[in-house]
């Protein structure tokens, strides 16, 4: 009843150029894709805007493609499409695992990967895998295209590196051979919930030696983060329990969690350690 959307102007451009023009010309306008975060915020007046520019039917923003060396994911791709995509399950299993932990089937059929990233919640579940994959975010504005590395995209609590009239166009992930991966999420219930802590790990282990490793977390800092120091601890070393232990301890030292309605700083730090350990063990193949 009282969750009716306030009166707003609604635009559904067919092209990116038109979308950018609308964003530039209309004061207090905002991009909408799936709307699963934004519409709730608008209905409860947490967000007030005058106009919405719906980018979900712009063909350039849709689709998942294998470009040979790179995977391209359009920003307005629905989460459920990621789960059902063979390209994703074959090349980006870590992303698939993270998306499977998100929302309900109904929500995943509306929500988009770009929406999850641009909403820039510290708890965004698509962020840790993309940080781990070192994905690149292609954004477009009136000045044209530019590429922002995923690790530079989140600049502060709910803030991204996007300029006011820019739109996230697509996500590019270079293909790489990873021997192991793991997404471990702890929420307040078994599913359909935001994370208290989640850890994503990618690992390349050859003959028991870690050639490369990526560790990323959400909900433990103002933005989703990479645990670079912990990665350094592991990289180039021989896989062992004590190595995992040391890396997990380093992760716990890298995070800067807070107390909030979902959990406490203390528990999040403890779980950063534990979940990092679980995720590393699995990704490094010792679980």
């Amino acid at each position: 009843m009282y969750y009716k959307l306030p009166k707003i102007d609604y635009y559904r451009p067919k092209t990116l150029d038109e979308a950018i023009r609308l964003l530039r010309e209309i004061d207090n306008s905002r991009v909408i894709a799936g709307g699963t975060d934004l519409l709730v915020d608008m209905k409860t007046s947490r967000v007030r805007v005058r106009a919405l520019v719906d980018i979900s039917s712009i063909p350039d923003l849709r689709g998942i493609e294998d470009l040979g060396r790179t995977i391209r994911i359009g920003a307005a791709t629905r989460l459920q499409e990621l789960i059902e995509s063979n390209v994703v399950s074959q090349n980006l299993p870590l992303l698939k695992a993270a998306v499977e932990s998100m929302g309900s089937w109904q929500i995943r059929n509306m929500a988009t990967i770009g929406g999850n990233l641009c909403n820039a919640s510290p708890a965004a579940d698509t962020a840790p895998p993309l940080l781990a994959y070192d994905a690149e975010f292609v954004v477009i504005g009136s000045e044209g295209l530019r590429v922002i590395p995923s690790t530079k995209f989140f600049v502060g609590y709910r803030k991204t590196a996007l300029n006011p009239c820019e739109i996230l166009k697509e996500i590019l992930v270079k293909k790489s051979e990873w021997s192991g991966w793991s997404y471990v999420k702890l929420g307040r219930r078994g599913g359909f919930t935001l994370s208290v802590v989640a850890v994503a790990v990618l690992a390349k282990v050859i003959d028991g030696v870690v050639y490369d490793v990526r560790i990323a977390l959400n909900s433990v800092a103002p933005v989703p983060i990479r645990a670079y120091k912990a990665e350094e601890v592991v990289r180039g070393k021989r896989v062992s329990w004590s190595l995992i232990e040391e890396a997990a301890n380093t992760v716990a030292g890298e995070v800067t969690p807070i107390d909030d309605v979902r959990s406490t700083s203390w528990y999040r730090r403890e779980m950063s350690y534990q979940l990092a350990k679980d995720a590393l063990a699995k990704a490094l193949g010792v679980a």
Partner: peptide, 28 residues
């Protein structure tokens, strides 16, 4: 196991929505 009201210092219920007042689902 999970339901819990969180009160602010002024007695306001902080988790007055279903994002943060968590109830069980079929998972539980």
């Amino acid at each position: 196991l999970m339901e819990k009201l969180v009160f602010a210092d002024d007695g306001r219920i902080v988790n007055d929505n279903l994002t943060d007042y968590v109830i069980p689902t079929s998972h539980e």
